[in-house]
Design a protein around this nucleic acid. Structure first.
Lengths: 134, 134
DNA sequence: CGGCATCCCTGAGGATACTG
DNA sequence: CAGTATCCTCAGGGATGCCG
């Protein structure tokens, strides 16, 4: 028996539904919106970048996490990895068309948030002062 | 001296830049795109919901995490909490105008991802089979 | 340069019990 | 119903070292 929960309560009629725990789209969304995934996609939106360039762009990411993030994005088909067998090695990462579509929407969100930070910060102050910064 | 890193390499000229480690927008973006934040905002987009309704919508979220998530979103001014002092208590959560703006963009992203899951799944199979599912 | 392997620790987050 | 308080686990993620 299909419950409304499994179908997503009419949010949409797509075969995939992020709100359901078991849906694979949830995993991909987490890769995309995860701590480093979003910033990585955003950084690559401007053009292809090498590993260490990327690392400098995404301020604070460790080598390990960037590597791990890139693998997940590559596996999901959002990022293409192009390795040149030169010495020293040169590896470029770039968005796939699918990755571009996602990055676009992500950047839309990011820019919107950045543009509203003054409101957010003001809301925080009001909240903290009302509730005694508990 | 201001480096390109601090300014975000020309991605935008806003005073806030998610790519910088210390920028407060990074924190808010994480609330919004975090494991439960995004799903919570998405669920509230359809209309106000009570605590346990929300809990059922966001499949898999624990009581504690939902509570915590809602507090963060309320503090950032994205969600409004309306408590009625009845018995039993009734508390409704709804998006603020700012929260709506964010949720809209987030749902845009979510629906895009859901709509492309077949591509993602296909890419995964190709990846796993090439690299031996290591 | 572009990684992978390993160790280790913090904190996100689940389970449970209790309160107004 | 709508939470808060505690405990505890495990995995996210930092630091370090090594390699092609």
């Amino acid at each position: 028996m299909t419950t409304t929960q499994e179908r997503g309560e009419g949010l949409d009629d797509l075969p995939y539904n992020v709100f359901a725990k078991a849906c694979p789209s949830r995993g991909t969304l987490e890769h995309v919106t995860g701590r480093w995934g979003g910033l990585t996609l955003g950084a690559l939106y401007e053009g292809s970048l090498r590993f260490n360039e990327l690392r400098r762009r995404v301020d604070g990411v460790s080598e390990k996490m960037l590597s791990q993030t890139l693998h997940a994005l590559e596996r999901d088909g959002l990022v293409h990895r192009e390795a040149q067998p030169t010495n020293p090695p040169r590896v470029d990462y770039e968005l796939t068309p699918l990755g571009r579509g996602i990055a676009e929407r992500l950047l839309d969100l990011i820019h919107f948030v950045e543009g509203r930070m003054d409101d957010v910060l003001a809301a925080r102050e009001r909240y903290d002062e009302t509730r005694g910064a508990r």
